[in-house]
């Protein structure tokens, strides 16, 4: 059924004639809307934030970070082909320094360090990403629920979070991992348990401020239930800071895992793992190459994720800042 439009008597419309009906004329004089990579896409109706992620990685740091991660992903995928030797085989003389035979030397059991560093990427990287995703998800949901419902729910969840915060991360993870017994799976559970509260805190405060915004209230007036309001109106609008936090925490997760492995609470030998390798290297201090190369591997990955996280944050921040000034002429 179509509404007859002639019944409206809205008087002259001075602005309409002078502007494109679909234009962004209100923002035309705004610095925030200055033409940039997103301008054309905006005109086509593509959401700005979807384009921003690649734009974010176009900063020098973002490119470096992205390239490093890409290299590591390739290494992880093709480790069996790239490895010059079997990472588990004790096929070489023990404690060989780097040289033509073993490019990065051998460890105290006569295994090729290069092969072990490369194949460790297959355990460390996916586990670190998984840990971060899982704790981000768990922490965000708990924090969002706490922020949205408030009162009793909020108290319970946030006091739990405070409890975790009260202990140094690595010590608590150690205690949990020790209680559960050594093994990669238990190390993951331990890291998950100690890392969700930081997401919960951020998610809670974001949701609390979003909850009272007019579009959320408008949704409630249209009869949205609480879960729907959270999922549809709130979640997409608070996701970006959490994503940034997640990217920045990948490095931290790898370090914590390395710490647990170092204490023999992570990957069970002989599975190659960067942290465990550093730990072995420390036991053989004179053979510096055993610890140095896995350590460098950890350093590059942690740095790369921090670079990506930094440029993501830089790219998302102005966007949130830009929405503020749009009301003035």
């Amino acid at each position: 059924m179509s509404a007859p439009r002639e019944t409206r008597t809205t008087g002259p419309n001075p602005l309409h004639g002078s502007q494109p009906a679909d234009g962004t004329a209100d923002g035309a004089a705004l610095p925030g809307n200055a033409p940039g990579a997103g301008a054309d896409a905006v005109a086509r109706g593509i959401p700005r934030w979807r384009l921003r992620v690649p734009t974010a990685l176009r900063t020098p740091l973002g490119i470096v970070g992205g390239a490093i991660i890409a290299v590591w992903v390739l290494i992880a995928l093709f480790a069996p082909i790239l490895c010059p030797a079997d990472p588990l085989a004790q096929a070489f003389p023990r404690l060989q320094p780097p040289g033509p035979g073993n490019l990065l030397g051998t460890d105290e059991l006569g295994r090729d360090v290069l092969s072990r560093v490369l194949s460790a990427a297959r355990t460390t990287l996916p586990v670190a990403v998984l840990v971060v995703l899982a704790s981000m998800l768990a922490g965000s949901i708990l924090g969002a629920v706490a922020g949205y419902f408030g009162k009793f729910v909020d108290e319970v969840i946030m006091r739990l979070a405070d409890l975790v915060f009260a202990f140094p991360t690595i010590i608590l993870a150690m205690v949990i991992a020790a209680a559960l017994g050594p093994g990669l799976k238990n190390a993951v559970v331990a890291i998950l348990l100690v890392s969700w509260p930081s997401y919960a805190r951020v998610a809670r405060s974001l949701v609390m401020s979003a909850r009272s915004s007019e579009y959320v209230v408008a949704g409630r007036l249209l009869g949205f239930s609480a879960p729907r309001s959270l999922a549809v109106d709130i979640a997409p609008n608070v996701a970006s800071p959490l994503l940034v936090l997640g990217t920045l925490s990948v490095g931290e997760a790898i370090l914590t895992m390395a710490g647990l492995s170092f204490l023999s609470l992570g990957a069970v030998p002989p599975t190659p793992d960067w942290g465990a390798m550093v730990s072995e290297g420390v036991a053989n201090f004179s053979a510096w190459w055993i610890a140095l190369f896995p350590g460098l591997a950890i350093l590059t990955v942690v740095m790369a994720f921090n670079f990506i996280g930094d440029s993501l944050r830089d790219a998302l921040d102005p966007r949130t800042a830009r929405t503020v000034g749009e009301q003035t002429s």
């Binding site: 959401p47 934030w49 915004s213 007019e214 579009y215 209230v217 408008a218 949704g219 007036l221 249209l222 549809v232 109106d233 997409p236 609008n237 929405t323 749009e326 009301q327």
Partner: peptide, 16 residues
């Protein structure tokens, strides 16, 4: 009962 709010910049979900 439905409402139209004061601030048109805040009353629509920016991500939908």
């Amino acid at each position: 009962i439905q409402m139209v709010f004061q601030n048109p910049y805040a009353s629509l979900n920016p991500r939908r």
